[in-house]
Write a protein that binds this DNA or RNA. Structure first.
Lengths: 199, 199
DNA sequence: GTCTATAAGCCGATAGAC
DNA sequence: GTCTATCGGCTTATAGAC
């Protein structure tokens, strides 16, 4: 909130955030974080009790900015809800073309901490994705689209799937395919199929 | 191919597979693998040049069995292509309810190795997912469904998304939601929408 | 709040005997 | 092919001065 030149704590989180995202939390040492932040390790441990606390702070710092980014991408696209959602995926694909892109920090951290379900970072990651799903649901309900609860969950699945596939194959077109699937699902929900198309 | 009591190499891969999947590759030491396999570390390094080689062997050993599992789940479900695909996701959700379930080993390994795109394990993981996508495509084309290339890619996205979401939230119902989305997408592709439903 | 210095142990990988 | 023993380096975290 305050606009200080940047507190020591903020500089630590900024340094950790860059390193954790670029290399993965398990491959970054506390020494590396301290060096990147321009402080000693003793100072680092003064501000954060443990590496696990720092990991939690890293994800906490990315929660709101990431959500705002998705919302800006959605709002910036012309058309109805289906078009706007597809546009959001198109912007995501564009962002994934940046050389430093390395997937979703929340999902990658969850993958690394899969054997520690109670880890604070897992809860933050789960909360972040829940917020995305909830936001999408309010969007669908505001647009008068039925089945917003199921639909928003399906959009989230396409989003996370596109993060995983784009990272594994280093191919952002998976995100565009996810956008097309999202578009088709929203269109189907917007105009329920007549019975002639039933099974 | 041979049905020996189990060669040393096979026992090593079996031990590594259990440990890597349960704890994540970065959290498992070569000491732990050797101990689990009942050999010394020197013997382990006689059979595998490095840990990276062992990681590749781990994923290679899971490639075919995993694909066969998906195909068996698909075949075991009654109905048409859409129902069979949804049934496959339902079986996946059931498997995810096992206490030892920890997501997709290929995706979790890719997340850990995100900063090493050229790692052999990344190529094996990408190949595995490509095979799944290709298999789905042949299924759709054999059933006479149009757009099999795009559709199979969208099913893969739902699959990977459900792995990620189910792991993060520890909630297998995300896989059932993915199955419903897959069902809807396949039904739409099977019976193209008449123009009254166009935008 | 930040520093220098170090504890105590684990890491991947190797030497050399048999 | 398997063993005992160990290297050199890196890991998280802490002690005590200022």
């Amino acid at each position: 909130m305050t606009s200080q030149p940047a507190s020591t704590r903020e500089r630590i989180v900024a340094a950790a955030s860059k390193l954790f995202y670029a290399e993965g939390i398990g491959r970054v040492s506390m020494d590396a974080v301290a060096e990147k932040a321009g402080i000693t390790k003793r100072t680092l441990y003064y501000h954060f009790r443990s590496k696990d606390d720092l990991i939690a702070a890293y994800l906490n710092g990315r929660d709101q900015p990431n959500l705002l980014l998705f919302q800006r991408w959605f709002d910036a696209t012309d058309g109805g809800t289906a078009e706007k959602t597809r546009g959001m995926f198109a912007s995501l694909a564009q962002s994934a073309r940046h050389p430093k892109w390395k997937g979703c920090g929340f999902l990658r951290t969850a993958a690394e901490l899969a054997s520690m379900p109670g880890h604070p970072a897992m809860k933050i990651g789960a909360g972040h994705k829940k917020k995305f799903e909830q936001w999408m649901r309010t969007v669908f309900e505001a647009a008068g689209i039925e089945g917003g609860a199921l639909l928003s969950r399906q959009i989230l699945l396409l989003l996370d799937g596109s993060f995983a596939a784009a990272l594994l194959h280093r191919d952002p077109t998976y995100m565009e395919a996810a956008g097309e699937a999202a578009y088709a699902l929203i269109m189907s929900a917007s105009s329920p199929l007549p019975q002639i198309l039933g099974k």
